[in-house]
Simulated assay, not measured.
Amino acid sequence: MTKALEIPSYSEWNLFTRQTRPLMIAGPCSAETEEQLFKTASLLKNNGIEVLRAGIWKPRTRPNCFEGVGVKGLPWLQNIQRELGMKISTEVANAHHVETALKYGMDMLWIGARSTANPFAVQEIADSLKGVDIPVLVKNPVNPDIELWIGAFERLYLCGITKLGAIHRGFSSYNSTRYRNMPQWQIPIELKRRIKNLPLFCDPSHISGHREYIQEISQKAMDLGFDGLIIESHVNPDCALSDASQQITPDQLNQILTHLVIREEHPNNSNNTLIMEELREKIDTLDNTIMEALTNRMKIIEEIGMYKKQNNITILQPDRWEKILTRVLEEARKNNLSEELVERVFKAIHQASIDRQTDIMNE
């Protein structure tokens, strides 16, 4: 196991003028023309955006789609860096991308979801970044695999890259959903628990897939304490050559940011701190009660498992399980609890009970 990653917060990157939350990274999905990119960047700059993002190489799911302008777009970014004083960033998918992007003075790079899912690609990128001291952000892999995501950070860290950050862009799902990608917020939350100081950014554009959801997803990220947002913004989104439906104009982005409520991680005065501590003590007491109840329930499950083994009775009892589920969901409704929450909890308990009885049966 790799030792704990000692990663500085983004305020310690010493790269940006504004160190308060949220750090905003914005720009078009793809750099399409020099005029399009510069005009978008100018409007973003006027609205206080400090970091420009633009795709130069675009990995597309199917061929014959717009896959980016390639290297010729890098001087366009460099000109914006020089003329407007913005920081510039782009996505890299291999060592060649890294080397070429660095030649044009990128201030920040990010690794896309498809690349994160490929340890060979991540290792190649990590090796090519040795000795480079710029922030590198890593998008979550396409599928909800937190170990794969953490592995990407470890590969980069072992090559000496410490200015690391995560981009949560949601996870692909076979089923059609409201969003393009399922948020599954519990995964970035667990990532933050496992890598303590890791700066966490949200990509509402890719989670939503539709511009009308960007506001609510951005607010959710702020409510959860994310450090920043990376949002796709285009001077004329409806005419964009890639991902048109999820891009917004710089003015629309400004409206979203104006209405964002920024939450603080800790209470801002001693009285609020005391109130929080008292409420958390109550939570801790209830958690202990839950743990005691689970322990006692599992002891009874073991007795039931022994009885079933001695009397050659099947572990799964569908009628009994149906009665339990019906009863607890009815209780959830009476107590104004989320039925979805209660169902998930009791399904997990039921599965643990089956697993324990299976062990007893086969001892």
Rank of each mutant, 00 (worst) to 15 (best):
M86F: 08
L43G: 00
L274G: 00
I187Q: 07
F66D: 04
N254D: 12
S128W: 05
Q219E: 10
S89R: 00
D355S: 11
M1N: 09
S173D: 11
P75G: 10
N140D: 06
L84F: 12
V142C: 02
D227C: 05
L224I: 08
K72T: 09
T162Y: 07
R356C: 09
E340Q: 13
Q247E: 13
T295A: 11
G55D: 04
P22D: 08
E99T: 12
G170R: 06
H210A: 13
P75H: 11
Y307W: 14
I256Y: 02
P8R: 06
V92A: 02
L279S: 07
T295H: 12
I301H: 02
Y213A: 05
L274F: 11
E322C: 10
Q81T: 00
V136P: 01
F201L: 15
T177P: 00
V142N: 01
I256L: 13
P267M: 09
G68M: 07
L229Y: 02
D227I: 08
N296K: 15
W76M: 08
Q219C: 06
R327S: 13
I230H: 01
V142P: 00
Q357R: 12
I349A: 11
I349V: 14
D133V: 02
R180V: 02
L52K: 09
R53Y: 09
L156A: 04
D319P: 00
L129P: 04
Q317Y: 07
A166D: 06
D284W: 08
V132C: 10
V261D: 07
M106P: 01
G105T: 03
H234A: 05
R211V: 03
A113G: 12
I111M: 04
E35G: 00
G55N: 03
K103W: 01
F171D: 03
E99K: 15
E50A: 10
A293W: 01
P28Q: 10
N311H: 15
E281V: 01
Q351K: 15
V142Y: 00
I290H: 05
I7T: 05
N143P: 00
L148C: 15
K45G: 04
P63F: 08
V138D: 01
A31K: 03
N118R: 11
L148G: 08
L77Q: 08
E363K: 14
R280G: 00
K282C: 11
S338K: 09
D127R: 15
P63Q: 07
W76C: 05
S242E: 03
I214Y: 06
A121M: 12
A113M: 10
E67T: 14
I150N: 06
S30A: 15
L341Y: 14
I248A: 06
E34S: 13
G48C: 09
L241M: 13
N335D: 07
